[in-house]
Amino acid sequence: MADSLIARVRKDIVLYGALAANLGIAIAKFVAAGITGSSSMLSEGFHSCVDSFNQVLLLYGQHRAKRPPDAVHPFGYGRELYFWAFVVALLIFAIGAGVSVYEGVHHIHNPEPLRDPTINYVVLAVAVVMEGTSWFIARREFDTARGELGWWQAVRQSKDPAGFMVLFEDSAALAGLVIAGVGVWASHRFDRPELDGYASIAIGAVLAIVAVFLAREAKGLLIGEPADATIIAQVHALVDGHPAIASVNHIRTIHTAPDRVFVAISADFHDAVTMGEGEAILKDLEGRLKAAVPVLSSIYIRPEKREDAVVVPPPGA
C-alpha cells in the first residue's frame, strides 16, 4: 500500500512539474513571438499551451480513474485514464501539429520583416532549461518503472500512459526548440524570413509523428491489453501447483487500470474433489493469488474439464 502511494505521488510530481514548466514557457514564447514576429516561436507557444492542457487532462484522468467500482462500472473506472490519454494524442495532432503547419505555410506565403532575434534566443535557452528539467524528471520516473526492459519494450508493455506520454511530449518539445532555434538563426543568417515558416512546418511534423505514436499506444490500452507475461506465469504456477488442480486450461487477463488486473482462469479439478471441497479450494486459491499478486483486483476461477476447454499453453511453454 505504501509503495503504491509513493508511486502515485511520483507520477503526480511528473505531471505537475511538466505543467508548471509548459505554462511558464508558453507565456515567454508568445511574448517573444509578438515582439519578433517569429512563426516558429508562435508555433512553439501553441505547442506549450497544448502540452499544458494535456497535463491537465492526464491529471483529470488519473483523478477520475481512482473512483471505486459501483453498479454501473463493477470493475471500476481505471480505464478512463486510457480514454483521456487518447484524447491527449488527438489534441497533439489536431491542435499542436495542425496550428504549427498552418502558421508555417502562412509565414512562407506572407513573410514578416526580420527583427532582432536576441529575445528569441533568450527564450529558447530558458525553455531548454525548463523543458530539460521536466524531461529529466519524467525520464527518471520512467527508468524506475521500466527496470531492466529496453525503452521501446517498456513503452509497449507499459499500462500507465501518463509516464511515457509526458516523456515523449517533453522529447518532442526539446526537438521543437532545436528546430525553432535553427529556423530563427537561418532566417537571419540568409536574410530569408520564409525559412522560419519551414521550421514551423518541421515542428508540426515532429508533433504529428509523436501524436500518431501516442494514439496507437493509447488505443491498445483503451481496447484492452493483457497483463505482463510474468504475472500470467506466476498465476499459472500458483494454480497449477495446488494439489486439487489436475491442470490449468487457460488464463485470460485484462488491465482494468494501470495497477489493476482482472483474471479469468479455467482449471480442471481432480475427479475426487467434491462440490463442497471445491468451494473451499476456490476461496483458498483466490486468497493465495491476491497475496502473491496484489494487482489482481478481480479473480474468476471456472472448474472445467480439460476436454471441454480451449487449452492455451502457459507463457514460455
Rank of each mutant, 00 (worst) to 15 (best):
W151C: 09
V155P: 06
R140M: 10
A71M: 11
F136E: 09
D116V: 11
F86R: 07
I119Q: 11
E141I: 04
F53P: 04
A125N: 08
V56S: 05
H107Q: 14
E148D: 15
H63C: 09
G150Y: 03
R64G: 03
L149Q: 07
V101D: 02
Y102W: 15
V56W: 14
Y77V: 03
V72C: 11
A162L: 01
A145D: 12
C49K: 10
A71K: 14
G147M: 06
D170V: 01
F83C: 11
G163C: 13
F142V: 01
L114C: 06
F46M: 06
R156H: 14
E169L: 06
G76E: 08
H73F: 02
V88P: 04
L91Q: 10
I108G: 03
H47R: 03
D143E: 14
S52V: 07
S158W: 01
R79N: 01
L57F: 02
G76Y: 05
Q153F: 07
S48H: 05
R115E: 14
A97K: 03
H109T: 15
C49F: 15
N120P: 00
I137F: 04
P74M: 01
L57V: 10
V129E: 00
H109S: 14
I108P: 03
H63T: 13
F136L: 15
H73V: 07
W84H: 00
G150E: 06
F136W: 15
S52L: 08
A89V: 06
R67Y: 05
I92Y: 07
H73W: 05
G132C: 09
L59A: 00
G150W: 08
L114F: 14
R67H: 02
A89S: 01
Y60S: 11
V128G: 05
P111T: 08
G61P: 00
E103A: 13
S158H: 08
N120I: 02
P74K: 08
D70K: 09
L90Y: 08
L58P: 07
F46E: 04
E80I: 01
K66M: 10
W135V: 11
R140W: 14
R79S: 04
V166Q: 06
A145T: 12
G147R: 04
V88Y: 00
T144S: 10
A94M: 12
G96A: 02
N54T: 02
R115C: 06
F164K: 00
L167Y: 03
V126A: 15
H73G: 11
V122W: 07
A125M: 08
I92K: 08
D143M: 13
R140D: 12
M165D: 10
C49V: 15
A89Q: 07
R67K: 12
F168H: 10
A125R: 04
G76S: 04
R67D: 09
A89Y: 02
F164V: 08
E131S: 12
P113S: 13
D70H: 05
G150A: 02
V123E: 03
V99E: 02
M130Y: 12
G76R: 04
